[in-house]
Design a protein around this nucleic acid. Structure first.
Lengths: 141, 141
DNA sequence: GTATGTGCAAACTTTTTGCACTTCG
DNA sequence: CGAAGTGCAAAAAGTTTGCACATAC
Protein backbone atom coordinates (compact mmCIF):
# COMPACT_ATOMS: atom_id res chain seq x y z
CA UNK A 1 0.00 0.00 0.00
CA UNK A 2 1.17 3.45 -0.91
CA UNK A 3 1.90 6.10 1.64
CA UNK A 4 -0.35 9.11 1.85
CA UNK A 5 2.30 11.32 0.29
CA UNK A 6 2.67 9.02 -2.66
CA UNK A 7 -1.06 9.18 -3.19
CA UNK A 8 -0.87 12.93 -3.18
CA UNK A 9 2.00 12.93 -5.69
CA UNK A 10 -0.05 10.65 -7.91
CA UNK A 11 -3.09 12.85 -7.79
CA UNK A 12 -1.11 15.91 -8.80
CA UNK A 13 0.83 14.07 -11.45
CA UNK A 14 -2.26 12.54 -13.04
CA UNK A 15 -3.56 16.03 -13.75
CA UNK A 16 -0.43 16.79 -15.74
CA UNK A 17 0.81 19.20 -13.12
CA UNK A 18 4.38 19.35 -11.90
CA UNK A 19 4.80 17.70 -8.54
CA UNK A 20 6.33 20.39 -6.37
CA UNK A 21 6.87 20.33 -2.59
CA UNK A 22 4.51 23.30 -2.25
CA UNK A 23 1.67 21.54 -4.02
CA UNK A 24 2.20 18.38 -2.01
CA UNK A 25 2.14 20.10 1.33
CA UNK A 26 -0.79 22.34 0.51
CA UNK A 27 -2.88 19.38 -0.54
CA UNK A 28 -1.70 17.49 2.52
CA UNK A 29 -2.66 20.44 4.72
CA UNK A 30 -6.18 20.49 3.32
CA UNK A 31 -6.59 16.80 4.08
CA UNK A 32 -5.20 17.23 7.59
CA UNK A 33 -7.08 20.40 8.49
CA UNK A 34 -10.52 18.96 8.28
CA UNK A 35 -12.73 21.92 9.07
CA UNK A 36 -12.64 23.40 5.58
CA UNK A 37 -9.61 25.61 6.12
CA UNK A 38 -9.09 29.12 4.83
CA UNK A 39 -6.01 30.07 2.80
CA UNK A 40 -4.65 31.55 5.99
CA UNK A 41 -5.20 28.37 8.05
CA UNK A 42 -3.35 26.44 5.37
CA UNK A 43 -0.45 28.88 5.24
CA UNK A 44 -0.03 28.84 9.02
CA UNK A 45 -0.17 25.06 9.17
CA UNK A 46 2.41 24.64 6.44
CA UNK A 47 4.79 27.19 7.92
CA UNK A 48 5.20 25.02 11.00
CA UNK A 49 7.19 22.56 8.95
CA UNK A 50 7.97 24.54 5.82
CA UNK A 51 8.53 28.15 6.89
CA UNK A 52 9.48 29.59 3.52
CA UNK A 53 6.21 29.24 1.67
CA UNK A 54 4.87 32.53 0.33
CA UNK A 55 1.29 33.69 0.73
CA UNK A 56 1.05 34.33 -2.99
CA UNK A 57 2.15 30.80 -3.71
CA UNK A 58 -0.54 29.37 -1.47
CA UNK A 59 -3.21 31.28 -3.35
CA UNK A 60 -1.76 30.34 -6.73
CA UNK A 61 -1.53 26.67 -5.80
CA UNK A 62 -5.06 26.65 -4.37
CA UNK A 63 -6.36 28.18 -7.58
CA UNK A 64 -4.52 25.56 -9.63
CA UNK A 65 -5.88 22.74 -7.47
CA UNK A 66 -9.44 24.06 -7.81
CA UNK A 67 -9.08 24.40 -11.59
CA UNK A 68 -7.83 20.84 -11.78
CA UNK A 69 -10.62 19.56 -9.60
CA UNK A 70 -8.41 18.31 -6.80
CA UNK A 71 -10.14 20.49 -4.22
CA UNK A 72 -13.28 22.62 -4.05
CA UNK A 73 -14.13 26.06 -2.86
CA UNK A 74 -16.75 26.30 -0.16
CA UNK A 75 -19.15 29.20 -0.03
CA UNK A 76 -19.74 30.85 3.32
CA UNK A 77 -21.74 33.77 4.67
CA UNK A 78 -18.53 35.58 5.44
CA UNK A 79 -16.17 37.07 2.94
CA UNK A 80 -13.52 34.40 3.42
CA UNK A 81 -13.04 31.58 0.98
CA UNK A 82 -12.65 28.10 2.40
CA UNK A 83 -11.43 24.92 0.76
CA UNK A 84 -12.61 21.34 0.77
CA UNK A 85 -10.51 18.28 0.00
CA UNK A 86 -13.53 16.13 -0.81
CA UNK A 87 -14.32 16.43 -4.48
CA UNK A 88 -17.19 13.95 -4.61
CA UNK A 89 -20.60 15.66 -4.57
CA UNK A 90 -21.68 16.29 -1.01
CA UNK A 91 -23.53 18.73 1.16
CA UNK A 92 -22.65 20.80 4.19
CA UNK A 93 -24.00 21.50 7.65
CA UNK A 94 -23.28 25.11 8.58
CA UNK A 95 -23.25 26.14 12.22
CA UNK A 96 -25.04 29.41 13.01
CA UNK A 97 -23.05 29.90 16.19
CA UNK A 98 -19.52 29.38 14.99
CA UNK A 99 -17.63 28.85 11.76
CA UNK A 100 -17.85 25.07 11.78
CA UNK A 101 -18.79 23.47 8.48
CA UNK A 102 -19.39 19.73 8.58
CA UNK A 103 -19.48 17.49 5.54
CA UNK A 104 -22.73 15.70 4.90
CA UNK A 105 -23.00 12.87 2.43
CA UNK A 106 -26.42 11.46 1.75
CA UNK A 107 -26.91 9.34 -1.29
CA UNK A 108 -30.62 8.93 -0.62
CA UNK A 109 -31.04 12.70 -0.65
CA UNK A 110 -29.08 12.93 -3.89
CA UNK A 111 -31.40 10.41 -5.52
CA UNK A 112 -34.46 12.18 -4.20
CA UNK A 113 -33.29 15.49 -5.65
CA UNK A 114 -32.19 13.93 -8.93
CA UNK A 115 -35.65 12.38 -9.38
CA UNK A 116 -37.37 15.58 -8.38
CA UNK A 117 -35.44 17.71 -10.84
CA UNK A 118 -35.76 15.14 -13.59
CA UNK A 119 -39.47 15.96 -13.93
CA UNK A 120 -39.03 19.61 -12.97
CA UNK A 121 -37.53 21.19 -16.06
CA UNK A 122 -35.93 24.60 -16.04
CA UNK A 123 -36.46 26.15 -19.47
CA UNK A 124 -33.31 27.80 -20.76
CA UNK A 125 -31.13 26.36 -18.03
CA UNK A 126 -28.86 23.33 -18.16
CA UNK A 127 -28.63 21.85 -14.69
CA UNK A 128 -25.18 20.74 -13.63
CA UNK A 129 -25.06 20.32 -9.91
CA UNK A 130 -27.17 20.62 -6.77
CA UNK A 131 -25.78 21.45 -3.37
CA UNK A 132 -27.86 21.59 -0.22
CA UNK A 133 -26.82 23.95 2.53
CA UNK A 134 -28.17 22.90 5.89
CA UNK A 135 -28.00 25.61 8.49
CA UNK A 136 -28.47 25.00 12.18
CA UNK A 137 -26.75 24.86 15.53
CA UNK A 138 -24.52 22.16 16.91
CA UNK A 139 -25.21 21.40 20.57
CA UNK A 140 -21.52 21.67 21.31
CA UNK A 141 -21.38 25.25 20.03
CA UNK B 1 -52.57 51.92 -1.86
CA UNK B 2 -49.26 53.06 -0.44
CA UNK B 3 -46.38 54.08 -2.58
CA UNK B 4 -43.30 51.91 -2.68
CA UNK B 5 -41.34 54.39 -0.61
CA UNK B 6 -43.96 54.42 2.09
CA UNK B 7 -43.80 50.65 2.21
CA UNK B 8 -40.06 50.86 2.64
CA UNK B 9 -40.37 53.43 5.42
CA UNK B 10 -42.85 51.16 7.16
CA UNK B 11 -40.60 48.14 6.95
CA UNK B 12 -37.68 50.01 8.49
CA UNK B 13 -39.84 51.65 11.11
CA UNK B 14 -41.46 48.39 12.19
CA UNK B 15 -38.07 47.02 13.14
CA UNK B 16 -37.58 49.92 15.53
CA UNK B 17 -34.92 51.46 13.31
CA UNK B 18 -34.70 55.12 12.51
CA UNK B 19 -35.97 55.91 9.05
CA UNK B 20 -33.09 57.70 7.38
CA UNK B 21 -32.74 58.66 3.70
CA UNK B 22 -29.71 56.36 3.44
CA UNK B 23 -31.61 53.34 4.68
CA UNK B 24 -34.54 54.08 2.41
CA UNK B 25 -32.47 54.40 -0.71
CA UNK B 26 -30.28 51.39 0.03
CA UNK B 27 -33.31 49.20 0.50
CA UNK B 28 -34.88 50.70 -2.60
CA UNK B 29 -31.69 50.02 -4.55
CA UNK B 30 -31.72 46.36 -3.55
CA UNK B 31 -35.31 46.02 -4.75
CA UNK B 32 -34.51 47.79 -8.03
CA UNK B 33 -31.23 46.04 -8.78
CA UNK B 34 -32.64 42.61 -9.07
CA UNK B 35 -29.56 40.49 -9.77
CA UNK B 36 -28.47 40.23 -6.17
CA UNK B 37 -26.26 43.31 -6.13
CA UNK B 38 -22.92 43.70 -4.41
CA UNK B 39 -22.25 46.54 -1.97
CA UNK B 40 -20.46 48.26 -4.82
CA UNK B 41 -23.40 47.92 -7.24
CA UNK B 42 -25.63 49.44 -4.60
CA UNK B 43 -23.27 52.33 -3.88
CA UNK B 44 -22.91 53.19 -7.56
CA UNK B 45 -26.65 53.03 -8.15
CA UNK B 46 -27.41 55.29 -5.21
CA UNK B 47 -24.75 57.83 -6.11
CA UNK B 48 -26.59 58.59 -9.34
CA UNK B 49 -29.29 60.33 -7.35
CA UNK B 50 -27.68 60.74 -3.96
CA UNK B 51 -23.97 61.43 -4.57
CA UNK B 52 -22.90 61.98 -0.98
CA UNK B 53 -23.41 58.55 0.45
CA UNK B 54 -20.27 57.10 2.02
CA UNK B 55 -19.01 53.60 1.33
CA UNK B 56 -18.77 52.92 5.04
CA UNK B 57 -22.39 53.91 5.49
CA UNK B 58 -23.50 51.49 2.80
CA UNK B 59 -21.76 48.62 4.57
CA UNK B 60 -23.09 49.68 7.97
CA UNK B 61 -26.64 49.99 6.66
CA UNK B 62 -26.45 46.65 4.85
CA UNK B 63 -25.26 45.01 8.04
CA UNK B 64 -28.12 46.58 9.98
CA UNK B 65 -30.65 45.45 7.41
CA UNK B 66 -29.31 41.90 7.48
CA UNK B 67 -29.41 41.83 11.28
CA UNK B 68 -32.99 43.03 11.23
CA UNK B 69 -33.96 40.50 8.62
CA UNK B 70 -34.95 43.01 5.97
CA UNK B 71 -32.46 41.58 3.47
CA UNK B 72 -30.26 38.50 3.20
CA UNK B 73 -26.68 37.83 2.30
CA UNK B 74 -26.09 35.52 -0.64
CA UNK B 75 -23.11 33.22 -0.74
CA UNK B 76 -21.16 32.96 -3.95
CA UNK B 77 -18.09 31.12 -5.17
CA UNK B 78 -16.28 34.42 -5.40
CA UNK B 79 -15.16 36.45 -2.46
CA UNK B 80 -17.74 39.18 -2.93
CA UNK B 81 -20.83 39.38 -0.79
CA UNK B 82 -24.14 39.89 -2.52
CA UNK B 83 -27.49 40.90 -1.11
CA UNK B 84 -31.03 39.71 -1.63
CA UNK B 85 -34.19 41.69 -0.98
CA UNK B 86 -36.36 38.59 -0.72
CA UNK B 87 -36.46 37.41 2.86
CA UNK B 88 -38.89 34.52 2.42
CA UNK B 89 -37.12 31.16 2.22
CA UNK B 90 -36.10 30.47 -1.35
CA UNK B 91 -33.40 28.89 -3.43
CA UNK B 92 -31.03 30.10 -6.12
CA UNK B 93 -29.96 29.16 -9.61
CA UNK B 94 -26.28 29.99 -10.07
CA UNK B 95 -24.87 30.41 -13.56
CA UNK B 96 -21.51 28.74 -14.18
CA UNK B 97 -20.73 31.07 -17.07
CA UNK B 98 -21.42 34.44 -15.55
CA UNK B 99 -22.32 35.97 -12.22
CA UNK B 100 -26.07 35.71 -12.67
CA UNK B 101 -28.00 34.42 -9.67
CA UNK B 102 -31.68 33.82 -10.21
CA UNK B 103 -34.24 33.38 -7.46
CA UNK B 104 -36.03 30.08 -7.35
CA UNK B 105 -39.12 29.54 -5.26
CA UNK B 106 -40.54 26.08 -5.09
CA UNK B 107 -42.95 25.25 -2.35
CA UNK B 108 -43.21 21.62 -3.43
CA UNK B 109 -39.45 21.23 -3.05
CA UNK B 110 -39.61 22.85 0.38
CA UNK B 111 -42.25 20.35 1.48
CA UNK B 112 -40.27 17.46 0.07
CA UNK B 113 -37.15 18.51 1.97
CA UNK B 114 -39.07 19.24 5.14
CA UNK B 115 -40.57 15.75 5.07
CA UNK B 116 -37.25 14.17 4.25
CA UNK B 117 -35.42 15.86 7.09
CA UNK B 118 -38.26 15.21 9.53
CA UNK B 119 -37.41 11.51 9.57
CA UNK B 120 -33.69 12.08 9.04
CA UNK B 121 -32.46 13.28 12.42
CA UNK B 122 -29.08 14.88 12.93
CA UNK B 123 -27.89 13.99 16.43
CA UNK B 124 -26.44 17.00 18.19
CA UNK B 125 -27.62 19.44 15.57
CA UNK B 126 -30.69 21.66 15.61
CA UNK B 127 -31.81 22.24 12.05
CA UNK B 128 -32.87 25.78 11.22
CA UNK B 129 -32.91 26.28 7.50
CA UNK B 130 -32.26 24.50 4.22
CA UNK B 131 -31.12 26.25 1.06
CA UNK B 132 -30.64 24.49 -2.24
CA UNK B 133 -28.02 25.83 -4.60
CA UNK B 134 -28.69 24.83 -8.16
CA UNK B 135 -25.71 25.30 -10.42
CA UNK B 136 -25.92 25.22 -14.18
CA UNK B 137 -25.76 27.28 -17.32
CA UNK B 138 -28.36 29.60 -18.74
CA UNK B 139 -28.72 29.30 -22.53
CA UNK B 140 -28.46 33.07 -22.84
CA UNK B 141 -25.02 33.09 -21.17
C1' DG C 1 17.16 23.00 -21.57
C1' DT C 2 12.74 24.79 -21.23
C1' DA C 3 8.29 25.27 -19.74
C1' DT C 4 6.30 25.64 -15.46
C1' DG C 5 6.23 27.00 -10.78
C1' DT C 6 7.79 29.83 -6.65
C1' DG C 7 9.22 33.86 -3.60
C1' DC C 8 8.69 38.29 -2.65
C1' DA C 9 6.85 42.62 -2.23
C1' DA C 10 3.80 45.82 -3.85
C1' DA C 11 -0.82 46.77 -5.29
C1' DC C 12 -5.63 46.03 -5.32
C1' DT C 13 -10.30 45.07 -3.67
C1' DT C 14 -13.57 44.58 -0.35
C1' DT C 15 -14.87 45.50 4.14
C1' DT C 16 -14.30 47.49 8.90
C1' DT C 17 -13.37 51.02 12.26
C1' DG C 18 -13.10 55.41 15.08
C1' DC C 19 -14.64 59.63 15.89
C1' DA C 20 -16.65 64.15 15.17
C1' DC C 21 -20.79 65.75 13.25
C1' DT C 22 -25.70 65.30 12.07
C1' DT C 23 -30.42 63.81 12.27
C1' DC C 24 -34.65 61.30 13.62
C1' DG C 25 -38.14 60.82 16.84
C1' DC D 1 -32.61 67.01 23.62
C1' DG D 2 -30.53 62.51 23.35
C1' DA D 3 -29.85 58.28 21.26
C1' DA D 4 -28.97 56.53 16.95
C1' DG D 5 -27.03 57.09 12.46
C1' DT D 6 -23.75 59.15 8.92
C1' DG D 7 -19.42 60.95 6.58
C1' DC D 8 -14.89 60.61 6.12
C1' DA D 9 -10.54 58.87 5.94
C1' DA D 10 -7.50 55.60 7.51
C1' DA D 11 -6.60 50.80 8.20
C1' DA D 12 -7.49 46.00 8.10
C1' DA D 13 -8.19 41.68 5.80
C1' DG D 14 -8.08 38.86 1.96
C1' DT D 15 -6.44 38.18 -2.49
C1' DT D 16 -3.94 39.13 -6.90
C1' DT D 17 -0.07 40.43 -9.71
C1' DG D 18 4.60 41.06 -11.93
C1' DC D 19 8.89 39.66 -12.39
C1' DA D 20 13.35 37.65 -11.36
C1' DC D 21 14.84 33.31 -9.82
C1' DA D 22 14.40 28.26 -9.21
C1' DT D 23 12.98 23.59 -10.29
C1' DA D 24 10.54 19.46 -12.32
C1' DC D 25 10.59 16.73 -16.08
Amino acid sequence: MKTSIEHIRDKISKKGLKVTPQRICILEAIYDLDNHPTADNITEYIRETHPNIATGTVYKVLETLVENNLIKKVKTDRDIMRYDGIIEAHHHLYCSECDLIEDYMDHELDELLKDYFKKKKFPGFKLEDIVVQIRGTFDKC
